[in-house]
């Protein structure tokens, strides 16, 4: 991928909602504001999601008496964050229903 192509590709995600999974298991969901060559990503209006603890999972299963149940992740608002590229495990683009701006090619 040459520089021009990379620039175009990355620019289309500006202002779009990204989900970034990091190595310790947390997920950050926010709007992309900025990125650089080291893949450091700045997200705004970010929420942090965390896998529920084993205890919480066990409790939820016990209470619902169903081995396949839905548990909401614990979340909190963290605002403007920068996720350093070295900790990023997975990046997901979330296509929101509203067609805002131009079409994104994933």
């Amino acid at each position: 991928m040459d520089n021009a192509e990379a620039t175009t590709y990355l620019s289309q995600y500006l202002g779009k909602s990204l989900r970034i999974h990091i190595l310790d298991g947390r997920i950050f969901v926010g709007q992309m504001k900025c990125t650089d060559g080291d893949c450091n990503i700045i997200l705004s209006l970010t929420y942090e999601y965390r896998q529920p603890s084993p205890n919480a999972i066990r409790e939820a299963i016990e209470s619902s008496e169903n081995s396949s149940t839905l548990i909401t992740l614990s979340s909190r608002f963290v605002g403007l964050v920068v996720v350093p590229g070295q900790y990023i495990q997975k990046i997901e683009y979330e296509e929101t229903g509203r067609a805002s701006g131009q079409y994104v090619v994933p």
């Binding site: 040459d2 990379a6 620039t7 990355l10 500006l14 650089d36 060559g37 997901e92 979330e94 296509e95």
Partner: peptide, 22 residues
């Protein structure tokens, strides 16, 4: 939801030092 990890990192790596996409 699309997994864009691989393409995103490849694109980021193609950026020049000091270049920001913002």
């Amino acid at each position: 939801v699309w997994d864009i990890t691989e393409k995103f990192t490849r694109a980021a790596a193609a950026l020049e030092t000091g270049q920001l996409i913002k």
